[in-house]
Design a protein around this nucleic acid. Structure first.
Lengths: 247, 247
DNA sequence: GGCGTAAGTTTGTATATACCTGTATATACA
DNA sequence: TGTATATACAGGTATATACAAACTTACGCC
């Protein structure tokens, strides 16, 4: 269906659209990696049998979308994935702590392969019985407990997850590099910590926590579901953006 | 400087860019309001003395940015401001409550003109002594206190603010229509409610609250600074989006 | 008046062409 | 060996042209 020339409305897909989806398939499929140089406009003109202006439009629009990087005189390259999407500045914990002048350290509390029960399967939009990886860890700012991370990972999509050393790099940054992401969901809540959370974060019952749950998809499959719990007095989310003209 | 033909890099501004900024000046300056029909491609061809493809590119890019709406055979129109920017679904309280099947009601607790002291002036990025409007109100879901709203408004930019009936429509929706917005800032926190907040929201000391602070700008001036406080068990923020291809 | 058709307008797409600037590379020269 | 020059190639912009599709309007006919 991807290579179809018909849109869903059963109208012929414009040539520049065909070229765009073809290029995106190369990028999302992994045959063209970030930093790779892709064929020149004239190459694509010959390959697709269209005029250069049509190829130019496809490449220009993908560049505006942040998928490609063009350098006059040199070529067109696959852009690095865009980490912060601008509206809310949700970064990796270590970046957050570093940006506030702290020193990040992490501690893996458990890391294992599990079989999904109904509750966990629901989080991952899948069915019970699926193989998953489960990690629970703590992030510290210096010696202060800063964030609890409870994460499930789709074992089929990220088979090497168990082999990583998450005391140095965070799961977030590993997953960012290891799996392409097509969709992201965030849920932000304010909750009172439960008994375990109070213990691990050294909190009182009346200390509120900010909870950020994130799910990421690769096409129709959930890659990971993670729940971050941070003391409310240490962590907050902020973002500043222009409602139009995303640049 | 706006009508200059030179970019900051001292290179001539492309014709299609010149047309884009000209159109944006009309929109942001208010001479073309949302819903208005703007001149056709051929009108702009005559007006700017360029080819139709150049005008077409300018209009197409503004359409992709969400600033214009084009209807084949009919014309090009100024798009309505985009309320939800996609990454986090931050809507008006009444919409939120309605979306969750509740019934919104609000109660203005105070509404007055004030003169900014240093603390308030800092919130609005201005100086002490400036005239502001200050509203404090409660939003209910049926009879349950749902959100406290504490808002300052730039009196020069929104002179009619005091005359509105905020027991029917919310300040958010009034401001959305009354003032164009060029920039938005959000800060999200989890806090324990203070004495007043506990009283007005009918909470215990250990009930966490989600606080959303929003500031909006019109060019270099802060239009409004608002702090929303909601019980954590009633209110949460969520959003789902595609990291690339904003469509 | 009501209806259908034709003409005109408006946007959408595609092409061929032209000229510009910037980059890389091969070549000639000192 | 290092430097200058010529050349080819890359993308960036602009134009004139063409046809298609969606819509509006005017007009003629019944």
């Amino acid at each position: 269906m991807a290579s179809s020339v018909q849109t869903s409305a059963n109208r012929p897909m414009p040539a520049y659209e065909r070229i765009k989806v073809d290029i995106l398939h190369h990028i999302d499929g992994g045959t063209w990696r970030p930093g790779d140089r892709i064929p020149s406009e004239n190459d694509l003109v010959r390959q697709f049998g269209v005029s250069r202006m049509t190829v130019n439009r496809a490449l220009r629009e993908l560049t505006n979308d942040g998928r490609l990087l063009r350098v006059p005189g040199t070529g067109t390259f696959v852009a690095e994935p865009d980490t912060d999407s601008g509206l809310l500045d949700i970064r990796s914990v270590d970046d957050y702590i570093a940006a506030h002048g702290g020193k990040h350290r992490s501690e893996v509390m458990s890391l294992e392969e599990v079989v999904a029960d109904d509750a966990v399967a629901a989080l991952l939009d899948t069915v019970a019985g699926v193989r998953l990886f489960h990690i629970v860890m703590r992030h510290f700012d210096d010696e202060t407990p800063f964030q609890l991370e409870d994460r499930y990972v789709n074992a089929d999509l990220v088979p090497d997850f168990l082999d990583q050393d998450f005391n140095s790099g965070t799961p977030s940054s590993y997953l960012t590099d290891a799996v392409p992401v097509t969709e992201i969901e965030h849920v932000i809540e304010s909750v009172a910590p439960d008994v375990d959370e109070r213990k691990f974060l050294k909190l009182d019952e009346s200390d509120p926590c900010l909870v950020l749950r994130r799910r990421t998809w690769w096409n129709d499959d959930v890659v990971t579901n993670v729940r971050f719990v941070s003391p409310g007095h240490l962590f907050r989310l902020s973002g500043r953006f222009k409602p139009f003209s995303r640049q």
